[in-house]
Protein backbone atom coordinates (compact mmCIF):
# COMPACT_ATOMS: atom_id res chain seq x y z
CA UNK A 1 0.00 0.00 0.00
CA UNK A 2 1.38 3.30 -0.95
CA UNK A 3 -0.37 6.40 0.18
CA UNK A 4 0.84 9.57 1.68
CA UNK A 5 -0.10 9.48 5.33
CA UNK A 6 -0.97 12.62 7.20
CA UNK A 7 1.21 12.92 10.22
CA UNK A 8 0.65 15.61 12.77
CA UNK A 9 3.83 16.65 14.49
CA UNK A 10 3.51 18.37 17.84
CA UNK A 11 6.84 20.04 18.33
CA UNK A 12 8.54 22.24 20.83
CA UNK A 13 9.73 25.61 19.52
CA UNK A 14 13.15 25.23 21.03
CA UNK A 15 14.05 21.66 20.15
CA UNK A 16 12.27 19.82 17.41
CA UNK A 17 11.02 22.92 15.61
CA UNK A 18 14.52 24.32 15.46
CA UNK A 19 15.72 20.93 14.26
CA UNK A 20 13.06 20.90 11.56
CA UNK A 21 13.98 24.42 10.61
CA UNK A 22 17.58 23.40 10.35
CA UNK A 23 16.67 20.36 8.29
CA UNK A 24 14.97 22.75 5.93
CA UNK A 25 17.86 25.16 5.68
CA UNK A 26 20.26 22.25 5.18
CA UNK A 27 18.03 21.12 2.30
CA UNK A 28 17.57 17.69 3.78
CA UNK A 29 14.92 15.60 2.09
CA UNK A 30 12.13 14.14 4.15
CA UNK A 31 8.57 12.99 3.41
CA UNK A 32 6.09 15.81 2.96
CA UNK A 33 3.60 13.85 5.04
CA UNK A 34 4.15 15.88 8.14
CA UNK A 35 2.15 18.85 9.36
CA UNK A 36 3.79 20.76 12.15
CA UNK A 37 2.00 22.21 15.13
CA UNK A 38 4.37 24.37 17.06
CA UNK A 39 4.14 24.53 20.82
CA UNK A 40 6.09 26.82 23.07
CA UNK A 41 7.03 23.76 25.07
CA UNK A 42 6.28 20.06 24.70
CA UNK A 43 4.90 20.20 28.22
CA UNK A 44 1.91 22.10 26.88
CA UNK A 45 0.82 19.12 24.81
CA UNK A 46 -2.30 17.54 26.20
CA UNK A 47 -3.64 14.04 25.76
CA UNK A 48 -6.73 15.73 24.44
CA UNK A 49 -4.79 17.41 21.64
CA UNK A 50 -3.48 14.03 20.57
CA UNK A 51 -6.88 12.35 20.67
CA UNK A 52 -8.42 15.28 18.79
CA UNK A 53 -5.77 14.86 16.12
CA UNK A 54 -6.80 11.25 15.59
CA UNK A 55 -10.45 12.25 15.71
CA UNK A 56 -9.78 14.71 12.93
CA UNK A 57 -8.23 11.96 10.84
CA UNK A 58 -4.50 12.09 11.44
CA UNK A 59 -2.81 8.83 10.42
CA UNK A 60 -0.10 9.22 13.02
CA UNK A 61 1.03 11.71 15.60
CA UNK A 62 4.64 12.55 16.26
CA UNK A 63 5.61 14.35 19.40
CA UNK A 64 9.01 15.96 19.21
CA UNK A 65 10.65 17.72 22.09
Amino acid sequence: MSYLPKILAFVCTYCAYTAADMAGSARMQYPESVRIVQYLCTGRIDLLHILKAFEAGADAVLVGG
Binding site: D46, L47, L48, L51, K52, F54, E55
Partner: peptide, 16 residues
Amino acid sequence: EKEVGLLASQLKLAAG
Protein backbone atom coordinates in the same frame (compact mmCIF):
# COMPACT_ATOMS: atom_id res chain seq x y z
CA GLU B 1 -13.30 18.44 33.26
CA LYS B 2 -10.19 16.99 31.70
CA GLU B 3 -11.30 13.39 32.11
CA VAL B 4 -14.67 14.35 30.61
CA GLY B 5 -12.85 15.66 27.54
CA LEU B 6 -10.75 12.53 27.23
CA LEU B 7 -13.73 10.21 27.58
CA ALA B 8 -15.73 12.21 25.05
CA SER B 9 -12.86 12.04 22.61
CA GLN B 10 -12.44 8.31 23.18
CA LEU B 11 -16.13 7.65 22.68
CA LYS B 12 -16.16 9.63 19.44
CA LEU B 13 -13.06 7.82 18.19
CA ALA B 14 -14.48 4.40 19.06
CA ALA B 15 -17.80 5.20 17.42
CA GLY B 16 -16.02 6.49 14.35
